[in-house]
Design a protein around this nucleic acid. Sequence first.
DNA 1: AATGTATTGCAATTTTGTTGCAATAATATA
DNA 2: TATATTATTGCAACAAAATTGCAATACATT
Lengths: 151, 151
Amino acid sequence: MKEEKLLRKILEDNHLRITKTRLFIFNLLQNNEPQSIAELVDRSTTKVDRVSVYRILDLYEKLGIIKRINIGWKYKLELSDIFLDHHHHISCIGCGHMVAIKEEEELEDLIDNLGKAAEFVLTSHQLELQGYCAKCQKRQKKQSAQPLRAI
Amino acid sequence: MKEEKLLRKILEDNHLRITKTRLFIFNLLQNNEPQSIAELVDRSTTKVDRVSVYRILDLYEKLGIIKRINIGWKYKLELSDIFLDHHHHISCIGCGHMVAIKEEEELEDLIDNLGKAAEFVLTSHQLELQGYCAKCQKRQKKQSAQPLRAI
DNA sequence: AATGTATTGCAATTTTGTTGCAATAATATA
DNA sequence: TATATTATTGCAACAAAATTGCAATACATT
């Protein structure tokens, strides 16, 4: 429960109250894959009002507790790097399956340099990869070849 | 007008009609910085109905003509790599200013390897950096120091 | 130019996100 | 530990964003 302790500290430091709803939402974030707001609202019903979910997510974002990550056209929310180790994502267009890519020094260094070159002081970055996972590649081969840009 | 030719070819290849509205929206995408859907809808009024803007953007996404890029909690749309040279973005939290980062072989290679390591066949990726631009850094120094997690 | 059909615009609807305010719950303090 | 203070929540109403069905229109084919 190290994470909840940190959450409590952040709230305290900002003179914000440690409430059941705030802990509940934090719990949802902690015990699930990255979720959309709709999913979070869904998982909260009966426990927490829609409005409060939105308000708590806004607050958590301002406090740097959560961040948005992109999956194609949509985005999902996950705990930020102070709770989870810094990482990136790769997601399968075929089945939606998503895996975390653990931190790579070489990549992070390169990103730092991009910031320096642009004379920026970097505060954050996201890298998202998309493609077909091993399973979906096999499945595709079995079926007839797909057109490049089918709709 | 090389780009419009490619657009026409993609539509033709998919047995879709080349219409004034589709060309109009493409034109908006081509002649502006990355835009939000709201901005595109705004710039279309009187010419194109809101609904059609949504439908055309959906279509363009399916066809791989446009892609979403993230700016903090929001996203914007821009033409995809078949129209624009592949690049990434760095945006300033202070003033919202955004600059393109031109392709870097080393970075792209590294990303390819991440895909291979996960046994994925990659189709696309996005890298977004955030921070403070040179101007905003100076402005901040003048003002008193900011707390790390102010709300 | 006429025909068939995809595309568009309109109206209505659903979904998503926001606001004000009274009721409630968390903290400070006595 | 009870009470007072005030942040937080839920409710209702609202506003904005996105979607749907269908008739009117415009594009492509002959």
